[in-house]
Write a protein that binds this DNA or RNA. Structure first.
Lengths: 172, 172
DNA sequence: TATTGTTATACTCTATAACTATA
DNA sequence: TATAGTTATAGAGTATAACAATA
C-alpha cells in the first residue's frame, strides 16, 4: 500500500473547518496532483521539471549556473546535479564564460533546443488540460485571483527558524 | 543564503509559457507560502499541521490510529510519530480499543481539546487572512473553481513508478 | 491468513560546509 | 575579501520491511 500523497509533498489534510473553507487543502491537493501530472508527462521525454526549467531559461540568453539557479529557485548545489543530468543526456554543455573564468555558461545543444520545444508544449498542454475544464469567465477570474494572491498576501514565505547544523566531519 | 522554497517543497518554477498561464507556479507558490504561514502560526502553540489534524479528527469520534492516518493522508508509521508527539505534549492518549485488542483509540485530553479549539481558530484565521484580500464575488468564484478542480481534473494523483527497495539488513 | 501498531532502517531530497580557482 | 562552481555530507522527511500481538 502506497501513500504517495504524503510521500511526495508531505501533504496533510487540514481539518474541515466550519467557519472558513479549507484553503490549505485545496491548494495543496491541486498543486500536488498537477505536479504528478507534470512529472509523468515530462518523464516521457526523459526530463524533470527542473531540467525543463533550466533548459528553457538557458535558451533565452547566455546564463551562468548561478543565474539559472536564481531563476528556478534552486540552490547552486541542486543546479550542479541538474546540469549534470542535462549534460549526460546531451541536452546542454558547460562552457567557460569569456568574461569570468570562474563561471560556466550553460549552452543548450541542438538536441536540447528540440527537446525544450517539446517540453514546453507538454507543459502548456498539461496546464491547458486543467484550465480547459473551466468555464471561460470562471477561468479568467480564477487566474486573476491566483495572480493576486501570489503577488500579494502569498508572495513571500514566512521565515522558519532554521535548524542547527553541525560542521561536517572531514578526513585530515 | 537560504533557499527555503526549494528546500521545503522542492518547488521548481516552470518556464513562463507564452501560450498558457503557468498554473504550476501559481499553485505551487501559493500552496507553499500558505503552508509556511500555517506552520508558523500553529508553532506558536506548539503544534504541527499534522498534530492539529489528528487532534481535531480524534475529537470528533472514537478513532484508531489507522483511521486517523487515512483521514489525514499519512502513513501509519508517520501516525506513530505524530501520536507520540501528542502524548508527550499531554494532548492525547492511546487507549486500548474495547472491540479489537490490536487497535488503539486516540483519546484527546481536556488540555488537548482546549488546544484543538485554539488551533482551529488559528487555521481559520490564517485562511481568512488570505481569502479576506479578495473581492467577495471573486472569492466565491475562486473557491468554486478550486473545489471543481480538486474534485474533478485534479482529484487523483497519477501513479509514479515507485523506486526499488532492498530488504532491510537486520541482525540475527 | 490478514491486520494494528511498532521499531528499525533505507531512500530521496536538498541545503550547509569546506574547498579550489578566480575576481 | 568575495564569488562561481564542486564535492561530500548532514539532516529532515517519509516510506518499506519485518515483527509481535491479535483477529
Amino acid at each position: 500500500m502506497t501513500d504517495r500523497i504524503a510521500k511526495l509533498v508531505g501533504m496533510t489534510a487540514m481539518a474541515p473547518s466550519r467557519t472558513s473553507p479549507d484553503l490549505s487543502y485545496l491548494l495543496d491537493h491541486a498543486s500536488h496532483v498537477l505536479r504528478t501530472r507534470m512529472a509523468a508527462a515530462l518523464a516521457e521525454i526523459g526530463l524533470t521539471s527542473r531540467m525543463h526549467c533550466v533548459l528553457v531559461h538557458a535558451l533565452e540568453a547566455e546564463r551562468t549556473q548561478i543565474q539559472l539557479a536564481e531563476i528556478g529557485d534552486m540552490d547552486k548545489t541542486t543546479m550542479v546535479v541538474t546540469v549534470d543530468a542535462l549534460e549526460k543526456a546531451g541536452l546542454a554543455e558547460r562552457r567557460p564564460s569569456s568574461t569570468d573564468r570562474r563561471a560556466r555558461i550553460i549552452a543548450v545543444t541542438e538536441e536540447g533546443a528540440r527537446v525544450a520545444r517539446q517540453s514546453q508544449e507538454i507543459v502548456d498542454r498539461v496546464h491547458e488540460e486543467a484550465l480547459g475544464t473551466l468555464a471561460t469567465s470562471n477561468r479568467e477570474v480564477f487566474l486573476r485571483v491566483m495572480n493576486q494572491l501570489v503577488t500579494g498576501h502569498l508572495a513571500k514565505p514566512v521565515e522558519a527558524p532554521g535548524p542547527v547544523r553541525r560542521a561536517r566531519q572531514h578526513e585530515r
